[in-house]
Structure formats: structure tokens, C-alpha cells
Write a protein that binds this DNA or RNA. Sequence first.
DNA 1: CAGTGGTCTAGACCACACT
DNA 2: GTGTGGTCTAGACCACTGC
Lengths: 259, 259
Amino acid sequence: MPSTPPQDDSLAADAAHAQPAFSPLYQQIKGLILQSLQGGEWKPGEAIPSEMDLAARFRVSQGTVRKAIDELSADNLLVRRQGKGTFVATHAEQHVQYRFLRLVPDAGERDAQGPAERTILDCRRTRATAEVARILGLRTGDPVVQVRRVLSFAGSPTILEDLWLPGVAFKGLTTEQMAAYQGPTYAMFELEFGVRMVRAEEKLRAVAADAQQARLLAVPEGWPLLSVERVAFTYNDVPMELRRGLYRTDDRHYRNDLS
Amino acid sequence: MPSTPPQDDSLAADAAHAQPAFSPLYQQIKGLILQSLQGGEWKPGEAIPSEMDLAARFRVSQGTVRKAIDELSADNLLVRRQGKGTFVATHAEQHVQYRFLRLVPDAGERDAQGPAERTILDCRRTRATAEVARILGLRTGDPVVQVRRVLSFAGSPTILEDLWLPGVAFKGLTTEQMAAYQGPTYAMFELEFGVRMVRAEEKLRAVAADAQQARLLAVPEGWPLLSVERVAFTYNDVPMELRRGLYRTDDRHYRNDLS
DNA sequence: CAGTGGTCTAGACCACACT
DNA sequence: GTGTGGTCTAGACCACTGC
């Protein structure tokens, strides 16, 4: 250990020394907590150590840990619960059923989505095209799992979507698994494959249904559909899923809040 | 004044006493700053008093003011600039040209939108229909200003939109004003009418162009268009604009980040 | 240089949950 | 009661801006 005043022999000095570029202490702590999250030290749904414990572990004040956790919980990676502790966010047991799905019914304004019925049309191992590889950060020809399914609400088919997943991370994914699991697909990814999606980017367009799409969604050919291309990321902005969806928007709409 | 210890005769005690329901001090401070913003004490683009000054004014510590300002700047109502001060956010002189417009070119990924060319098709005083009145919080038949315009990027018509504005707040709005002003329309609303939009809600759908819409956007009839209904709010969640837009998404898309 | 926001600390007390 | 997160304070020092 370098010769520093007794109480200053802290991570503060060490980390500041290790990283040439300056960054605030709480950012460094945030990074360390993130590493523990990625490394699986604390699993989704579990509580992380108390602020005091973390402060002791990292040799900083509670206030600094607090600010780090503040940012992580603003990013939806952690969830604070007063009197209980701070927990790793999870797609399961989360009151909002579908964290990334913005399609809501026109009337009622209720989030009464009701669980969607899933129909898996296809689920097979294949190889990444150049485009899919580029988006998922793979090489052309790398193994991917491709899934095609229809989601129905209250019996009427509403979403037709294709999913592409990196074959390595989703090795044993089967049609049965996709169909059987109750609840959000992303919760199943967490439980079965340890892959937690933390954010996503979407590109929306209006398109006309082709013959096949029209049949699967029970609309006339040429019907306007909302095309939603989503790329979902795990920790560290690593892309782990490409999803191309077609949404019927006759009695539903895509809701977005701007600020 | 109630009999309290000498230094505790502060806003903390007063406000806590005035409001039966408990709320943290910094939330109360946030509310007071909000009032000053609404009241026009500090205008968009101007600096507000320093944290120290505000702390003295409200008789709380700098840290408490800081937390209030943190939230207001997270809400995009204030902008901090280290070494200079804290400023009231504005739609003008804001580097992102269009704060609420999420339509971006497919290629390049540049935000090189280039300023849109505006064509005002119509701008007239009329009366609110039941639906428009409901959305804008007016009564059916109340005066509203209605504007129809086309926005073109690089010469090609891309957005056809109708705007409805409360007639009282936008009394003298003219076609010339809508057409002449360089820069974001919301910046003009700030400068000319003192109306600052702070957030918005959008509902998106895919629709087919009717004959008139197709003509104005230079697409075939039936062409799929992205329908965007936006309600924009000033302070205190008061709705001040309804905007119904149709976006061409052949070489552009609506971008959204989820987290 | 002085003034601003930004970081870090230490300690006190409050609100909430479990037991 | 004990332990958790949540609030509030006071003071020190750092980083950036502009005179």
C-alpha cells in the first residue's frame, strides 16, 4: 500500500491513481457495483448489501454509495424499497407486465392488457445474415436462434414478431420453452439463460401488410401496420436480441411520453 | 410566528405546518421554484439565482436547494452549467433543433435534419369540437386556433400536421407568424405568447393515406403513414396544444429509446 | 481572482418494515 | 427494537467560467 495518511488509504486514492482520466468517486463506485451485477454476485430479485455495508467495503462514505445507487436505480438496474433494502431489478415479479411493450388499448386507458396468448410459429437454429450479424455484433454466419410468433390479446391476433438471439448465449432454447413460460419472455431469458435486458432502442415505421402477414394477423392485404424494430441490450450496451414486430393499431396505439 | 427555537423559524417549519400532508423539504422548495418559473420571475434562457442565494431566500441548506434543482433539471425545466449558473430551459438556442420530434433519417444516423421548410396551408380561428375541447381542457365551442401545415426535409414533403391551440392563450397568432419564424415552433410560442411546453404525450398508429393526404405528401393513395397524435403540456400539466401529424416513413423512422 | 456548480464527508434525525 | 433507505445539514474542497 502506498504511504498515505491512515484514513486516506481508501479506494478513492487507489482508483483515482489507477484511472488516469478523472471521474468522480461515485461514478467509480457505480462502475464497481455494475461489475458485481454483471458478474452475477447479486441475482435479479435479490437484495444487494446495505448502503453502510457497501460504504465500508469500498471505503467511502454512505453518501457516495447513495449517489451511485441513485443513478443505478434511475437507470432501472436497481430498485430501492424503503425500510427493506435495495434490490436487483428483474423482469419477473414486476408489476408492469411488459416493461418494453408500449402498445396499449385505445379505450379504458387501463393497462388491463391481460396476459397475451402466444403462438409460436417457428423456432429454429440458423445462421446470422450480414444484417442481423451487424446489429447483434456477431459475424456473418454465426449461429443464431430465430423465433417467429404471434401475440393475441383477448383472442384477436395483434402482434406478429420475429426474434433473433445470439446462438451462444441461448444454446438450449426450444419451442416448448418459448410457449410454456408464463409471463414476460424477458423474465424467462433471465431465469433460464441468465441474460438480463436493461434497455432497448426502437425504430418505428408504418408499412403495408403483405399477403402472409395479413393472413397471420387476420387483416386484409395492404392493411397499415406499425413496424417496430427493437434491439435490446444487456449490461455494457451489449446487444442480445433483435426483434422485428408488426403491430395492429386499429384499436390499440403505441404510447410514448416525451420530456 | 409560532414559538420555535430561534434558528428554526424557517420555511421548513412554516411549510410543513401549512401543508397537512407530509412532503420532504426539497419537494416543497421544488414547488416554490416551480411557482417562480410559472409566474415568469425568471424567463426562459435566463439564469436563476445561485444555489447559495436560493438557500438563503428559502432558509434551507444549499444541499436541499441542490436536490430540488436536481429534479427540476432532470425534468428538463432547468439546465445547469458548471461555473456559470443554472438556467431556465428554452426551446430556442437549444442545440437539439426539435426537442419533441423523434423522426430521424434512416441513413447516416446523423441528426443532420437540416431546418425543415414549412408550408402553412391554413391558419384560422374556429371553435373547439367536443373532442378537441376534451383533450385541451376547454368547453365545446370555445375559441381555438387551427393550423394545417406541411414540413419538408431536403425538398420532399414528409410531415402533414394539424395543430389546435387554445384561442385565449394564442390570441394574435397569424399565418405570417407561423411561416416567418426561423427555428422551432415551440420557441416562437415562448417568445410571442409566453407559453412554454415542458412535456408531451404521443399516441402512434399506422394508417393509410386518403386522397387529400396522399396529394399533400406526394405519395399514392392508401400509402402507409405513421399517425402521431401529440398533446403538449405547459407547467402544471395544463394541455396547451393538440397536434395530429402524419409522417412519411419511407426513408425516415421514429426513434425511441426504452429503459 | 471571485463566483458558480460539482463532489465528498460526517453526523443527526425521520419514515418504514420486520420481528 | 433494530436495521433499512430517505432527508437535512454544515463544512471542506474540486472544477469550470469569466473578469
